[in-house]
């Protein structure tokens, strides 16, 4: 899988949310999207997922323009987990995860589909909740179910829009490990929009920094996440702290 963005410009609600974005993601790579609120991370993810059409530029998946790929075919290659999720009152966890197999299912559900759902549930540690209703779960559990739905879809490119926002620290790390595994073991390309700089720093092969809809940096985490750039983009002073377990970014408290 190779995804190439060439000068992609997109608008959302009549406002240009992305301008002239170009980068490439390949199999086995974890790319995190960083940027302040409203910097265009979600719009970028939706544009890659085929939900929004770019107003200029093009997206190329394995050499083919995304607009020329049949939507069902595209759905077998790209999986998307939104930031905000919707479910109905009587949907069970199992049925929600099964939806990930929608692009492959004609009508009845084969044993193979079922076992894929089962292993997706296993991967996020939710097999015991398979029969529960979605509204009986906590926010974090729901988030895991939606991740499981994408795992069941088993695409070559995963797109996650803030997959850890509702999770406590243990599950944040668990989710990030799972997503990292997708790249390492399944050879998938994984694009994750996150807010937590340290998670991005720790799990990404490459970090793309967005600001006001523009790509301001793309490269190795240590090259992108420099105190200077973070101050410029976020307006926050950061100190890079080195410890025995690597290095992490610590916001410096502003003196009053």
């Amino acid at each position: 899988m190779e995804l190439e963005l060439e000068g992609v410009t997109a608008s959302y609600g009549g406002i240009t949310a992305l301008s002239d974005i170009s980068f490439t993601v390949t199999s086995g790579q974890v790319v995190t999207l960083l940027g302040p609120n409203g910097s265009g991370k979600s719009t970028l993810i939706k544009t890659i997922a085929g939900i929004l059409r770019p107003t200029r530029g093009r997206l190329v998946v394995d050499g083919t323009d995304i607009q020329r790929i049949d939507p069902i075919d595209l759905a077998t290659r790209i999986g998307y987990v939104p930031q905000q999720y919707t479910f109905t009152l009587y949907a069970t966890v199992f049925e929600t995860v099964l939806l990930g197999r929608r692009p492959f299912i004609k009508w009845s559900v084969s044993e193979e589909e079922l076992s894929r759902v089962e292993s997706a549930l296993e991967a996020v540690g939710m097999t015991g909740s398979a029969g529960k209703f979605m509204d009986q779960l906590s926010g974090g559990e729901r988030q895991k179910v939606f991740i499981a739905r994408a795992l069941a879809q088993d695409p070559a490119l995963y797109l996650f829009d803030e997959p850890t926002s509702a999770l406590d620290i243990r599950y944040q790390l668990g989710v990030m490990e799972t997503l990292r595994d997708l790249a390492i073991r399944r050879g998938a390309a994984v694009v994750i929009a996150v807010h937590d700089l340290n998670l991005a720093y720790r799990y990404a092969d490459a970090v793309i920094m967005l600001d006001k809809g523009r790509l301001v940096a793309n490269g190795l985490p240590e090259n992108v996440l420099t105190p200077d750039r973070i101050e410029k983009v976020y307006g926050v002073n950061i100190e890079v702290v080195r410890s025995g377990n690597g290095q992490f970014l610590m916001p410096v408290r502003q003196s009053r």
Binding site: A49, L74, Y80, T86, T88, E95, L99, G100, R102, R149
Partner: peptide, 20 residues
Amino acid sequence: AWDLNALASGDDVAKSLGID
């Protein structure tokens, strides 16, 4: 029926599953 099932997860998710 399957498209309606997918729509229950929201328009964006349904679109990403290949549904117009």
